[in-house]
């Protein structure tokens, strides 16, 4: 009001804010680019097309799981069983593909069943959390124990290999381009289609203010169950990517990934309390975690310090994600 300097500065800040509002994943993108640059600085080779493709196919599973988590977080819920769902789908499809002979038909049929298993896990979580109204953190922890038990029943010990057809396709090339790029493209289309539907808006409405959403006629229970169904679906897709990458079944493989998926969501700038989320941010957040891990490796950190430096770096980028996300919402 008094000086033009303050005016331009405040309009600059407001401009930034509106940018952040429209593209809430910007901070995550900045962190990601910075990490890429650092990776290139320490090991120019790490920016080659080949190593970036490798990074993408390794962390595609986490990307999918982070996106799965984003949909429940949108509604203010959380799914601590996402990793266990991933494990269950992983062992189920590997066992089915093997039993049915490992041909193209067997693979496709197993994948279709894998999707159904993921959806079933999501449905159970949705019923338990939304319809029976148990607290999401403890209830999905309980279902994660149950799903892990199922996975152990399907495959008691890790190590059954996936058919060559499956992992060769995932790790290979199609029309000259790495297959994982087609996965990414298909994911982009799927996310775009989902963003055009009502479900995302409804999830965000429930996450923002459950009571208000209910009073304006949003079927809160059904919407939250749909959120868990989407989570189950993407957890299954995540299992496909993981199976393509590791080429084997492991009943405990996803356990450690659950908390990383939550971290990726936060890194991407979404609010854990719900009502404000970004799937693109979660995608970038998952890749950020992957890049942090590879950077710590390329920096020549002594092996015993790698976990510590990774942990510290992830804590720091988590803080950055929270602070930037809040600025965007404020």
């Amino acid at each position: 009001m008094t000086s033009t300097a303050t005016d331009t500065r405040s309009s600059g800040a407001a401009g930034l804010r509106s940018w952040l509002e429209r593209y809430p994943f910007l901070p995550a993108l900045v962190i990601l680019i910075a990490l890429l640059a650092l990776n290139g600085l320490f090991s120019p080779n790490s920016l080659s097309f080949r190593s970036l493709t490798g990074l993408l196919s390794t962390y595609m599973a986490l990307v999918m799981l982070a996106i799965a988590q984003t949909y429940v977080v949108s509604a203010g819920d959380i799914d601590l069983s996402a990793g266990a769902t991933l494990s269950l789908v992983n062992v189920a499809i590997v066992v089915l593909m093997e039993r049915w002979g490992g041909g193209a038909g067997a693979v496709l049929l197993a994948l279709a069943l894998g999707v159904l298993i993921g959806l079933a896990c999501g449905l159970i979580n949705g019923i338990v959390v939304a319809a029976l109204r148990l607290q999401a953190i403890v209830a999905t922890f309980a279902t994660s124990i149950f799903f892990t038990g199922l996975a152990l029943y399907v495959m008691p010990v890790a190590g059954t290999p996936a058919p060559a057809l499956f992992w060769r396709t995932y790790g290979g090339r199609l029309f000259g381009l790495p297959f994982v790029f087609y996965v990414l493209a298909a994911l982009a289309v799927l996310l775009y289609l989902l963003s055009r539907t009502r479900i995302v808006t409804e999830l965000l409405a429930v996450g923002d203010d459950q009571q208000a959403a209910y009073q304006t006629g949003v079927p809160v229970v059904a919407v939250r169950i749909k959120g868990y169904l989407l989570c189950g679906l993407f957890s299954a897709l995540s299992a496909f990517c993981l199976t393509g990458d590791t080429a084997s079944g492991d009943p405990l493989v996803g356990g450690k990934m659950t908390l990383y998926s939550v971290a990726a969501v936060v890194l991407g700038g979404s609010a854990l309390a719900g009502g404000w989320t970004t799937v693109v941010g979660s995608l970038l957040g998952a890749l950020t975690i992957g890049l942090v891990n590879s950077l710590v490796f390329f920096m020549g950190t002594p092996s015993e310090w790698q976990n510590f430096v990774q942990g510290l770096a992830i804590l720091l980028v988590l803080m950055a994600g929270v602070l930037a996300g809040r600025r965007a919402r404020a």
């Binding site: 309980a142 279902t143 124990i145 149950f146 038990g149």
Partner: peptide, 13 residues
């Protein structure tokens, strides 16, 4: 172990 985990999870719920 698998049965134990399933029963444990279901009982917690």
């Amino acid at each position: 172990e698998s049965g134990r985990q399933m029963v444990f999870g279901a009982t917690l719920l």
